[in-house]
Structure formats: structure tokens, C-alpha cells
Computed example of a mutant assay.
Amino acid sequence: MEIKLEEISVVYARKDAPLKALNNVSFTIKTGEAVALLGPIGSGKSTLLQVMAGLLKPTSGRLSVGGQDGPIVLSIQEPQRGFFAATVREEVAFGPENLDLNRAEIEARVAWALTAVGLEREKWETSPLKLSGGEQRRVALAAALAMKPRFLLLDEPTIGLDGPGEEALRQTLQRIKTEMGIGLLVASHDPDFLYMFTDRVLVLVNGELRADTTWSAWAQKASAVAPDLKLPFLLGLLRRLAEAGAPVNAAPATPAEAWYELSRLRRAREKGGPD
């Protein structure tokens, strides 16, 4: 299954002047991919996700979805604000109930989704509004997963999470990516979070797609394309070390390779020379 965008533009009508939120954006994303969506505030990330989820009709351009069955599900910023059910179980069951599934299938999906996000069973009958911020995020993610999506779109999923909550979410998304084979597109201002489980990077600036690349390639051109965007800490550190003359690869392909470069440099310095 794939989602294909061809020259998508979105223009919002305003009293003073029209606002072009997206400008001729084109790319394709397939199931099995984990893609990061970067961009400064106001770059059009949320608008793009809404178009892809079918919640917003573009002003021009073409959006097509092909391949296997399965919905495209968008988890919006601070989704806990939309909670309405009396219990966590009921909140997660709401989506499947609207698919006209039988009760056994609904219950199976709810149990599977809540288990997948690691929410303790004793909290399933609790009001979602009484949970911590991190737990509420897990409930929102479980509600999305219970729909058995082929694509999961997440808009700023780390807002309001502390360090442990963010790490738990990252591990959950990594597990989903590995075990379910769905497509993930995650918009966030936290490049360190995205770097740990995504392989591809889309960069929006002023509604335009300025880059569709890998993390290693983005590390080499980020300062020229979008100087206000931060690199993941590991890539930024390696770039600064390379600029200072250290014998390191400043653009490793994966976080594991980035850690290897730092370890190799440390070992070389302990030996008193390059490795």
C-alpha cells in the first residue's frame, strides 16, 4: 500500500490575504517505512498530515492511495483533549465499534492494542482523564492501533511527555514498525526522538518540501536548507568533531553507526592516535 501526493497545495482564505499552507508538495510513502517530518512552526506539517488522512481537501493537486486494505489513521496533537469515554477500554473500543465489527473482534482489538502500547491491565477500566500524560498518550496510540491502520500519522506525539514517557513511546513505535509493517509518518520538533526509529526525512519549510532524504544526507545539507532546524544531538556532535579535525564519519546512516563512531574516536584517543 502507498500514499502518493502529487503537487498538493492548500490555501486558506483569510480576510487580509490568502495563506498558502502547502505549495506543490509531492512524495510517496509506502507501508513498512518509518518517516520523520521536520519543519519549523508554521511550516505546514499539521496541514499535510490532515490532507493525507483525508480530513482536509487540498486546494489543488492529487492524493491517491493504492494497495492493501486498511485505514489511514491520524493521531493529532494532544489527543487526550478529545477523550470522552468513561474508561480506557471504552475509549479504545470506539473506533472499531464504528467499523461494524462483532463484539469478540472489538474486544480482541482493544486488548491487543492496549497490550501493544504497554498499558497495565489494571488501568483499562480507569477513566483516561485520570492517567498521567504519558499513559494518556499510550491510550491515544492504542485507539489508533485498534483500527488496524496501514498508515499511522502522528502529529507532535512527544508534547507533554517526560523523558521516561518519551522513551516508552519510542520503544512502542519501534516495536510497531518491526512487528506490524505499517507505514509511520511522525511530525515532531524533537529530532533526537525521530532519529532513533525513522529512516527517511521529509523537511517542510514555508509549505514547500525542501528535502526528501536520509538522516546521513540531511546532516550534510541541513545548515543550507533549513539552518533553524536542529540536528539530532549525535549527528550534530559528530559534525562538530569532524569540523574540528577529528577522524570521524560526520554522517553515519544509523544511530548505531553514530555511537560506533564516537566509541571508535574515544578508543583512538585513549591509544594516543587515530584508529
Rank of each mutant, 00 (worst) to 15 (best):
E156A: 04
K57E: 14
T115I: 00
V10W: 04
P149L: 06
A108T: 06
L119F: 00
E107F: 01
L5T: 05
A140Q: 04
V201F: 05
N98C: 12
E91Y: 08
V25K: 12
A146E: 01
V201H: 06
P232I: 03
G32M: 11
G44P: 04
Q136V: 01
A251T: 13
S188I: 01
A34W: 02
K30T: 13
D69Q: 15
G165C: 04
A144Q: 10
F27I: 08
E135R: 06
D228Q: 15
F197C: 14
A211L: 13
V51Q: 07
G183S: 08
L204A: 03
L241V: 03
R121D: 09
R175Q: 15
E270I: 07
L38F: 11
L145Y: 10
V117S: 04
R264L: 12
L169Q: 04
G165E: 02
E208Y: 06
V73S: 03
T178Y: 07
M196P: 00
L229M: 03
V205S: 13
Q171M: 06
A86N: 13
L38D: 11
L114P: 09
G236E: 13
L153Q: 11
L63S: 04
R175M: 11
V51I: 05
L56C: 01
R267Y: 03
A251V: 02
G272R: 09
E270L: 15
L184A: 13
Y260W: 15
S216W: 00
V65I: 14
P71R: 05
W112R: 14
R109Q: 10
S75Q: 15
G82P: 02
I176C: 10
A34H: 03
G181T: 14
V110L: 07
V25G: 12
V51A: 12
Q80F: 13
F151G: 09
S188C: 10
Q174N: 00
K45Y: 04
L237K: 14
S75E: 13
S9F: 07
L22I: 07
A268S: 15
L5H: 02
V73M: 06
S75Y: 01
P128H: 11
E156Y: 01
A168P: 03
L154K: 01
L49G: 12
A144V: 13
Y260F: 14
L202F: 05
L114E: 09
I182V: 14
L262T: 12
P157V: 10
A258F: 02
P128C: 07
P274N: 07
V11Q: 07
G134K: 09
A116P: 00
N206S: 15
P128K: 05
L119Y: 11
K57G: 01
L114V: 01
Y260E: 15
T47C: 06
E270Y: 00
A222K: 12
V73G: 06
